[in-house]
Simulated scan of single mutants.
Amino acid sequence: RAEVAGLDVAREPRRVRSRIGLTGQYAAVDEGLTGRQNLEMFGRLFHLGNRPARQRAGELLDRFGLTGAADKAAKEYSGGMRRRLDLASSMILQPDVLFLDEPTTGLDPRGRGEVWEAVRALVADGTTVLLTTQYLEEADRLASHITVIDRGRAIADDTPDALKNRVGGDRIEVVSADPGDLDAVAKTVGRVAGGGLVVTDTPARRVHAQVADRVAALTEVARALQDDGIAVEDIGLRRPSLDDVFLRLTGHGTENHDAPEVAAA
């Protein structure tokens, strides 16, 4: 049983379709048409009529930062611009819920950032976005809620922070400038960590341990190392990443061909 926007998908499929939008994994725009023509065409396909379709196209071009390229053929757009145009076409009817299937596949970092900003703008305007992705950074940056799906089964469902807390809280990391100081660094970090597990990575000259009060721990370790005259190359607080979450929950990384997927909202 499933509901979308409070509607039963089996009993009220027509009403559900009128409340949703979909953007597939690859941009579905006509590259021979201009950006404006693409949006006007979609407007007419949704039975808006010529004048309302033109008006809506203009609104969406402005909203997605495409006004300057509105009259260029879509084939001249960058990957990020084509993706934003694709997102705009899915917003013709201002859906309550928008489904995005791996929206940044194949995009370079700039294009990915452009799409992220567009998605954030949609959410800020009140659209609920359900996003599937295998880019963990994307899920972390965009989602307020994440479901981890592994081999067809939902194995976790929570906020990004709550998922990270499953694999441990904040930890302090210190990289010693001198390998000979590692024992002293470990002793200092261990004292601040309250006797918890201290891990020493000798080749990397790194010591780290989980801490409860992140700011107080950082301050105390930095002061103690300075008082003892121990030079460090780096010191900082680290949080578990969603990579760590995947490894803990599934036992394998996302490079695996059966990589888990994230449904993020």
Rank of each mutant, 00 (worst) to 15 (best):
A73L: 14
T254G: 05
G43M: 05
A5D: 15
L225W: 07
T128Q: 06
G253I: 02
R238V: 10
T23R: 11
I20N: 02
R151W: 12
V174T: 11
P203L: 10
T105N: 06
A70K: 01
V29K: 00
R83I: 12
V192K: 05
I172Q: 08
A154Q: 12
F46I: 02
R1D: 14
V192I: 15
H145D: 13
A186C: 05
V211S: 07
I155F: 11
I146W: 04
L98H: 02
I235Q: 05
A27P: 02
F46R: 15
H252I: 07
R17H: 05
A53T: 04
G180F: 03
A209D: 11
H208N: 09
S90R: 02
L45T: 00
A177E: 14
Y26F: 15
R238S: 05
K72F: 00
A265G: 06
F42E: 04
A5C: 10
A74G: 06
L39V: 05
D201M: 07
R191K: 11
E59N: 03
H252F: 15
D258C: 00
K164G: 02
D170A: 12
D234F: 14
V167R: 07
L87R: 02
D227Y: 05
R166I: 00
E255W: 08
G43H: 03
A139I: 00
G49Q: 11
G169A: 09
T127R: 01
V192C: 09
S241W: 03
A162N: 10
L163S: 04
N38F: 08
D125T: 11
A73W: 10
Q94S: 12
K187P: 00
R248A: 15
V9I: 15
Y77D: 05
L218K: 02
T133I: 10
T105L: 13
V245G: 09
L61K: 02
A204L: 12
R17Y: 04
A57D: 01
A69L: 09
R82T: 07
G169Y: 11
A5Q: 08
L182Y: 05
L48Q: 09
